[in-house]
């Protein structure tokens, strides 16, 4: 059996918080990510959803190598990406790249598009001017820009075009995995639709694997194959998009879905309550939290585990 493309195994990230007190006696540890495990298959779009502070961005930064995990393993094609024996930045850059949320902030205002796109190529040993030019030209066409636009600077583009440049920059080294961190949340509705379409087209055309981080569940439903729902550092539910959106089992997932201002639901004369059947009951087990109160992030969470409740559908439960 071949190793999965990306495998995250029991990832923990903890941050020490200096908490006043004499000689640092008030020092506490914040548990940002608490034992996350998942696999990303080739050509798949996996989304991590959750609210601010649930640990989804920390998870992404760990995969990019911008955050050292406190515990756990991240493997790319079976080879460790973290800890001893991990490849350097250059190797990692060819495997994983990221598209950032804010296209205004993530491009260097002093570099033309050509310079921004050529730099990673040169660093990775592509030096022939004709090859660099050819790859930039092809990439700009891929993301819906024209080769002539390569000479321009970021301020000369609209928000949607800048996000296209951000995508081109992420894809220029031909990575297999692309992390999408809220890729469309800063964009207007019409531009957002165009970028979502572009991301779907590119994924099919180039066989990319997406790991998308988002709190916009309507975009997640539209794009994902599988979904992880995170709540205070833990995965509370995971499954295929159909399971998560049509038969969510965890109360927090239901709260998230119910909170989306959906025109159809808001205008439904029967009212949007009780969209789902009653919460499933599991003998001998219970939900640790219903997601309506915040757990203490400074203590390790109560013992619980992800339990298989159907095909491609797992939910976090503790023994009653």
């Amino acid at each position: 059996m071949t190793a999965p493309l990306l495998q995250v195994d029991d990832l923990h990230v903890r941050f020490p918080i200096s908490g006043g007190g004499l000689l640092g006696t008030g020092k506490r540890v914040l548990h940002a990510v608490n034992g996350i495990s998942f696999e990303l298959a080739k050509g798949e779009c996996l989304s991590i959803v959750g609210e601010s502070g649930c640990g989804k961005s920390t998870t992404a930064l760990s995969i990019l190598g911008l955050q050292t995990p406190s515990e756990g393993m991240i493997r790319y094609r079976g080879q460790p990406l973290t800890g001893p024996g991990a490849p350097g930045r250059m190797e990692r850059a060819k495997a994983v790249q990221m598209v950032f949320q804010d296209p205004y902030a993530s491009l260097n205002p002093r570099q033309s598009v050509r310079t921004s796109l050529a730099a990673p190529l040169r660093l990775h040993g592509v030096t022939a001017a004709s090859e660099i030019e050819g790859r930039i030209e092809a990439m700009l066409k891929n993301v819906g820009l024209t080769p002539e636009q390569a000479a321009r600077y970021p301020h000369e583009f609209s928000g949607g075009q800048r996000q296209r440049i951000g995508i081109a920059r992420a894809l220029i080294l031909e990575p297999e995995i692309v992390l999408l961190d809220e890729p469309v949340s800063a964009l207007d509705v019409s531009i957002r639709a165009q970028i979502i379409n572009l991301l779907l087209d590119l994924q099919e055309k180039l066989g990319l694997s997406y790991l998308m981080i988002s709190h916009d569940l309507s975009v997640v439903e539209h794009m994902s194959d599988r979904v992880l729902v995170m709540y205070f550092g833990e995965v509370v539910e995971e499954g295929g998009w159909r399971n998560i959106f049509e038969a969510p089992a965890h109360p927090y997932t239901r709260r998230l879905i119910a909170a989306i201002p959906d025109p159809a639901a808001a205008l439904d004369p029967t009212g949007k309550q009780d969209r789902f059947a009653d919460l499933p009951q599991f003998t001998g087990r219970r939900f640790v939290s219903d997601g309506s109160t915040s757990p203490d992030v400074f203590t390790a969470p109560a013992l619980s585990e992800l339990v298989e409740i159907g095909e491609n559908h797992r939910v976090r439960l503790a023994s009653a």
Binding site: V189, S190, L200, I257, D262
Partner: peptide, 25 residues
């Protein structure tokens, strides 16, 4: 019409593949 079609809506995804959203332009 374009604005409504450009909106990914809950429950609108069909069994077969991921359809593209309406591009107003």
């Amino acid at each position: 019409r374009g604005l409504l079609g450009a909106l990914p809506r809950l429950g609108s995804r069909s069994e077969h593949g991921r359809q593209r959203l309406v591009d107003i332009d």
